[in-house]
Amino acid sequence: MSGEAMIRVDTVSKWFGNVVAVSEVSCEISQGVTALLGPNGAGKSTLLRVIAGLTRPSKGRIEVLGADPRADPAVRGRIGLVPQQDALFDALTAREFVELAAATHGMDDVRAASDRALGIVDLSSTDTRPCKAYSKGMRQRVKVAQAIVHDPEVIILDEPLTGLDPVQRRALIAVFRRLGEDGKCVVVSSHVLDEVARIGTRVVVIAQGRLAATGDFHALRELMDDKPMSIRVLADDARALAGSLLSVSGVVGVQLNNQNEVIVDSTDVDVFGRAVARVARDTGVRLRHVDPLDDDLESVFRYLVERR
């Protein structure tokens, strides 16, 4: 990760009885937005709880802003957390809830801070309804507002986009990016891959409690050099083309999907890219479309999880 690490996770394990939730995870997270990616039950929430100091690691060490968040309440005050659970103080209005956060963080101008935080997540500070009357999406935004009201340096968001409609998602992702650009360390967990792809290119992948990979999207792809990439080729006679493509260096398999579509697995995409047009011409087949099938986060994730 680039820049000075604001979060250091050093061989952290966390188990509950015989169940290992997080196993030997080490990573460093610096300013900007980092997506914590993994399927449900992978250990993301447990790792975030350890980072926030909500639970002590069974083994290993956590440092947030140079201190142990479990032992140092002052450091906890520099963290903003959006927990996964839907719970709020339901009897309070959004404004009261966010003001409580500001006040208990010792802020001077509680009302101004609350108005600003609610404005960032596009909620009205004059709404007199209690939180229990809010929709799921509004409750999520209240949680984000209380997490950022005290201008924390580290912001941890556990599945913050759950329950939001697409417009709200885009708006919140923009908020996360802006916070990252402002120098905050923003960690956003998600199991929804297209979300993560939009949140940021820097990802920490966790699977079955273990760190599967860390880095940006392209760095992850470098980890996958030994994995054949799938490329979809659309042509007017895919059957004829499929046989010829097997002779191309690096091609390890072809699959004819229909008369016009063939999926090629190749360990050397560059060679394949240069060869495919020549092979098509030699075979007398007209190419219509060539695109990689798995140049996205989902394929990276699937591969990394399966590799474990």
Binding site: A74, F89, L92, A103, T104, H105, M107, D108, A117, H150
Partner: peptide, 26 residues
């Protein structure tokens, strides 16, 4: 956003009152 740096509250009476009010309502 700019804010005062949070520290452990040196005057606990203020947060005590705030938390009390919330808990009474709960």
């Amino acid at each position: 956003m700019k804010a005062s740096m949070p520290t452990v509250a040196t005057k606990p009476s203020a947060p005590l009152w705030l938390v009390y009010r919330v808990l009474v309502r709960q």
